[in-house]
Design a protein around this nucleic acid. Structure first.
Lengths: 207, 207
DNA sequence: CCATGTGAATGCGTTCACAGCC
DNA sequence: GGCTGTGAACGCATTCACATGG
């Protein structure tokens, strides 16, 4: 086993989603190609990094492939996460349905406004921001969705860092400056728009 | 000029954000390294794909570098976009502050509920979903933020496609199956969480 | 014949190391 | 001395092409 290349990991991660959506029956690398745009040999190669055998002459066995990816990527343990910042965006993610995968468990929401914490309806307990260290420690929360406004993002990230968080999904349009030990994934809507703009203009060099 | 490699484009895109945040004065590749984690020579190489000269012995000139990236990536034209689905997530993005870059212009919101369209407060006009073809055509909307619930995402994407949209940022946890001519960027929160989970567990092979 | 699976070849992005400039 | 800038070397992911199995 030669260590899975980083890009292959990302694809496998995304492949899990495809597998979840795919109905029944074996799935061939060709079908995956048509859904993702990745060449079928790329997919086969990626899968070949995993151990075990799925895949007969009719395609891949969905459950066992899913299981193999899960294990190989270290996703078999359940992780707790929280939402920080309960404005429109944060409360959207408090009530989001997409993580009932058993794999991630939303256990808390935080906001700097005590008032908002008391008023808001939520499927999970809400806490004022100053309780972050305590609550994060007590529950063993590892991940956070950072949904605060741009202006308070850096500060909130620092508090999360101090509270012992391990990873942050940052929705604020700000580059966070925090310890390298904490893994950050940025969701920059403006960047996504830009990226789209670049791609819908297939300008050669100086067309 | 050798065509900018795709990964370099993504970095340059992200670099624009750094430039916007960086205060005054020249910025060195070393400083960029400390903010992004990319090696300084990677950054210099990326920038070398652009034409023009920024960068003296004290670092890069922020305005001219920004301009060069903008032009080189074809971002100099302003693009119109809309928000589709005005639930919690959609209305969050209706009121989002991060795209006042002049570069993207939010011009409309759509929802299948006529009621919601009438009630909701919004900085831009809202329309019932059936008006998508007309409104998108009339304004020349090129991009869409797709914020509808999982169950209606595929259908909404098809409507957008039929209305002539060119690019979609998809927030629904679904792999859209639409024409290859339309560029899609997916924002899968669950994938982000998974990605974080993978990275905070630096499992060697079978540690 | 259909599919997966994989060593070996390819090619491209990254990295290096040094030249050029302020 | 600091920095940017860039051809050339490197290394790794992708791609190929064929072996293997149902």
């Amino acid at each position: 086993m030669v260590q899975i290349p980083e890009p292959a990991k990302e694809r496998l991660l995304h492949l899990m989603r495809i597998l979840e959506q795919a109905g029944e029956g074996p799935l061939t690398s060709g079908e995956i190609e048509s859904r993702t745009g990745w060449a079928s040999h790329t997919i086969r190669k990626d899968i070949s990094y995993l151990e075990g055998d799925f895949g007969s002459s009719s395609g891949y066995n969905i459950p066992s492939l899913t299981r193999a990816i899960t294990e190989s990527l270290g996703l078999n343990r359940s992780r707790k996460f929280c939402v920080v910042g309960l404005g429109r965006l944060g409360s959207a993610y408090l009530n989001f349905s997409a993580y009932q995968l058993g794999e991630f468990e939303l256990v808390a929401g935080f906001d700097s406004s005590v008032n908002r914490v008391e008023i808001l309806k939520s499927p999970v307990p809400l806490y004022p921001a100053y309780k972050m260290p305590e609550v994060i420690g007590r529950f063993g929360i590892e991940l956070a969705l950072l949904c605060v406004p741009e202006a308070s993002a850096q500060q909130a990230a620092e508090k999360l860092a101090a509270a012992g968080i391990k990873g942050i999904v940052n929705f604020a349009p700000v580059v966070l400056d925090i310890s390298q030990d904490i893994v950050v994934r940025n969701v920059y809507v403006a960047d996504e728009l830009r990226s789209l703009a670049v791609k819908i203009t297939p300008e050669g060099n100086e067309a």
